[in-house]
Design a protein around this nucleic acid. Structure first.
Lengths: 271, 271
DNA sequence: TAATCTAACAACGA
DNA sequence: CTCGTTGTTAGATT
C-alpha cells in the first residue's frame, strides 16, 4: 500500500498531469469502491475539471471545479495511471476509468480494497477515514515538541503509534522499518518511555526517511501517474533485509512479529 | 460525566468568572491528573492570566496569556467550582487548586479519572484525546448532509457512532437517550441503514436535545462554576425513566443493554 | 453506576 | 498473512 512518500510523488504527478483537464466520461467497473451510487458519482464527475491534487496521509485528494473533492485510496497494490486514447482497459481490473478531453484516460486500478470517494470540499472532517487522520509528519507544525507531547504517557509499543493513522498520517510498514533503525529504537519500546533525545532522534528519522522516500520517487511497487517507479527500496537500511548486514554494525538483520506486523531490525542497534 | 450541554454551560460560566484573572498560586494534590510534572505545571500556570474559556466535546479549554491552553476533563463526578478566600480545600479531594489575585479559589475536583492538561495553544491536534475529537454537533458545519455522509455505509449500531467521540464530540449516555427517542430510532439500528428522512430527524433531534440541555443549564449532577445546578433531567423523555410512560404513546419505557451501556427506550416508538 | 484507553483476538470484505 | 473496519472481551486507571 502506498505510504506518504509514494502518495506525495503520485499526487504531484497527478497535479501536473491532470490540473484543469476536463473529465469527459466516467466508467465504473466496481461500484463497491465508491461511497455513493454509480449514477450519483458519474453525475458529479462527468463534465467537471480537475483542480489541485494533493497528498493527505495515504490518500490523494483531487479537487474538482465544483463543491466536491475526489479522494483516492489505492489499498494494496493499486495504481492510478495515465493511458493513451486507444488503449483498452480490462474491465473489472480497472475499477474506475476517467476519459479526459483529449481522449487520454486515467485508469484507477485496485488489486484489493481501494476507494474512490466523493467528499464535500472543505468538509474532509466528515469523511469516516480522512476525517480521523492525524498529524502530517512533514508539515511545519509537526515538531519534536509536538511528537513528544503526543507520546507522553502512552503505554503501548512505539511501532503501534507510528502506524496509527489517527496519530500520524502516512507511515506504513515499509518506511517505518528504517525510521526505527535511524532512531535506534526497538519497535516494542514503550512509547511513553522515550527520552527527550530519543524523541528528537525519532522526529529526525521520520523526516529523513520520508523525505528520502520522496526524493527516490517512492518505494517498492509504487509509481507515479506516468508509471515512473520508486527506488527507495535500493536504499533500505534494514527493511526487508533479513540476514543481511546492519549498515551500522554488521550484525545480521532479524525479522520479528510485532502485533500483526513484521519488523526488520538490527538486534544490536535497536534496543 | 458532563456532556456537551453541561460543558457549554460550565465553560460559559468559567469564561465570565475567570477571564483576565491572575492565577497567583497553584496547588496540585493529584499529580497523575496532569500530563506534565507538577513542577512544570506550576511554572507554566503560576503568575499567568486566564483568557477565553470555551467548550470542545467533553473538555473545557481555557487559554492562558502564554502559548499554553489549560484543558479540563472532569471524568465522572468531577466539578470545577469557585470558592471564597477563606475556604479550606480538602487535600486529595480537590485535585488541583488555583488561587486567584483576589484570593478567590478555583477548586478542580475529580471523583474518578479527570484531567488537567497543558496543551500548546493552536496545536490541539497533537493532544492524544482532544486531537481526535470529531464534529461539534452544534457547529454550523454540522449539517444533515454531513451527518448523512458520515453514516453512509457504516455497519455498526447507530448508538455506537453517536457515542464515539471521534465521530461526534460531546454526546454521552445521558443526552443520547432523548436524541434517539426524538429521532424514533432504536439504539441498535444499523447506522448505514438510516434513510435520508431518518438522518434528518436524527440531526434535528441532536440539535434539539443538546440545545435544550443548554437552556436548562445542563443535566443531572452537573453545575456551573458557581454551583448552579442543571435541570434537564426534569425534562427527560425516556432517559432513566424505566417503567414510566412514553410521552408519545404511553408504553412503559424499557431498559436494555447496548454493548457496555444502558439504553432507555420506548419499545413501540423506537424501532 | 458511571468513561476512556489499551491489548488481544476474531471475522469481514471486491 | 497483507489492510482497515467492526465487534467483543477483558483489564487498568487516580
Amino acid at each position: 500500500m502506498p505510504e506518504l512518500p509514494d502518495i506525495v510523488v503520485l499526487a504531484e504527478s497527478m497535479d501536473k498531469a491532470l490540473r484543469n483537464r476536463l473529465i469527459e466520461d466516467v466508467t465504473v467497473n466496481q461500484p463497491k469502491c465508491l461511497n455513493v451510487s454509480v449514477r450519483r458519482f458519474a453525475n458529479q464527475v462527468r463534465g467537471r475539471r480537475f483542480e489541485r491534487s494533493s497528498p493527505r496521509g495515504k490518500w490523494v485528494l483531487s479537487d474538482l471545479d465544483t463543491k466536491w473533492t475526489l479522494a483516492f485510496n489505492l489499498g494494496m497494490g493499486g495504481e492510478i495511471r495515465l493511458h493513451t486514447k486507444n488503449e483498452e482497459p480490462e474491465t473489472k481490473r480497472e475499477r474506475v476509468v476517467l476519459r479526459l478531453d483529449d481522449g487520454q484516460q486515467v485508469w484507477i486500478h485496485h488489486w484489493w480494497f481501494g476507494h474512490v470517494h466523493l467528499v464535500p470540499k472543505g468538509h474532509l472532517g466528515s469523511h469516516p477515514q480522512i476525517g480521523r487522520l492525524g498529524q502530517e509528519p512533514l508539515a511545519d507544525g509537526f515538531t519534536a515538541d509536538i511528537l513528544h507531547h503526543m507520546l507522553e504517557g502512552r503505554r503501548g509499543w512505539i511501532k503501534k503509534y507510528l502506524l496509527d493513522q489517527s496519530f500520524i498520517a502516512g507511515i506504513g510498514n515499509v518506511y517505518i522499518q528504517d525510521v526505527l533503525w535511524y532512531a535506534r529504537l526497538h519497535p516494542k519500546r514503550s512509547a511513553g518511555s522515550l527520552t527527550r533525545p530519543e524523541v528528537e532522534g525519532l522526529h529526525q528519522a521520520i523526516q529523513r526517511v520520508l523525505n528520502e522516500g520522496i526524493s527516490y520517487g517512492g518505494g517498492p511497487g509504487e509509481q507515479d501517474i506516468w508509471g515512473n517507479k520508486g527506488r527507495y527500496q535500493e536504499h533500505f537500511m534494514v527493511g526487508y533485509r533479513t540476514g543481511k548486514a546492519c549498515p551500522e554494525c554488521g550484525t545480521p538483520v532479524e525479522e520479528l512479529r510485532v502485533g500483526s506486523t513484521t519488523s526488520y531490525i538490527c538486534p544490536k542497534c535497536q534496543i
